[in-house]
Amino acid sequence: MSLAEALEGKDYIIEEILTDDEELNAFLFSLGCYSGESITVVAKRKKNLTVSIKDARYNIDIQLASAIIVR
């Protein structure tokens, strides 16, 4: 499922990032957001969510959340 359907307060493992935007993919990678890494949904709102990757917090919009496939 995608991160957009993920539950608040739960840890997930990233499976895949669905984007053909190579730069974005590389950027997410440098933050530690790539397949196999864990990601936590700290807060979930209608249009955006707060996630914790490694030791930082990010706010991502729902479009990006739908592109991050987790399990």
Binding site: T19, D21, L24, L28, N48, T50, A56, R57, Y58, N59, I60, D61, Q63, L64, A67
Partner: peptide, 11 residues
């Protein structure tokens, strides 16, 4: 086109 938004939330 699809545009993604991501911003770091500092403490």
């Amino acid at each position: 086109r699809k545009s993604f938004f991501i911003i770091e939330l500092p403490e």
